[in-house]
Simulated assay, not measured.
Amino acid sequence: MMNLWILNEFLYFPDNKSEYIPAAIELAIILILCILVFNFFRKKARKDLEKTRELEEKILKEKQSSSNQH
């Protein structure tokens, strides 16, 4: 019985539904920001992967050329 009373203190459902508008706007803004940040990290990871592959190929070519000289 005590647990229900505690939960009721934190739950608030307004009778006036226009009070939901600021929360919906904030949720939409945060969702858009999350999507933008997620896409930024995906693009950054893709670029870093390409740089790593290029560096790896360069190192392998140098190893092959140095082993061919001996």
Rank of each mutant, 00 (worst) to 15 (best):
S66V: 02
C34T: 14
Y20A: 08
I35D: 11
K58M: 01
F10Q: 05
E9N: 14
E57L: 12
L36Y: 13
E57P: 02
E54T: 00
L11Q: 08
I30G: 06
W5K: 15
L33R: 12
C34K: 13
N68K: 12
L7D: 06
L27K: 13
N3Y: 08
A28E: 05
E56G: 05
S65Q: 12
N3C: 06
E19C: 04
K58P: 00
E50S: 11
L55N: 07
H70A: 13
L49F: 06
W5E: 15
T52Y: 09
E57G: 07
L36I: 14
I59Y: 05
L31I: 10
N16M: 03
S66H: 05
E26M: 09
N68M: 09
F41W: 07
I59S: 03
E50C: 10
I32Q: 10
N8S: 09
I6L: 15
S18A: 12
S66D: 05
L11P: 01
E26D: 11
L60V: 02
E54D: 02
F40S: 02
S67K: 10
K17A: 08
S18P: 06
I6R: 15
P22L: 01
V37T: 06
K58G: 00
N39V: 12
E56M: 10
I29V: 12
S67L: 13
I59R: 05
A24D: 11
N3W: 09
D48P: 00
Y20C: 05
L4R: 13
L4V: 12
L49V: 04
N39L: 15
F13S: 14
M2A: 15
R46F: 13
E62K: 04
L60D: 01
K51G: 02
I35F: 09
K61D: 02
K61M: 04
F10G: 01
K51C: 01
K58R: 00
R46P: 01
A24E: 13
F40E: 00
L55R: 10
K17T: 10
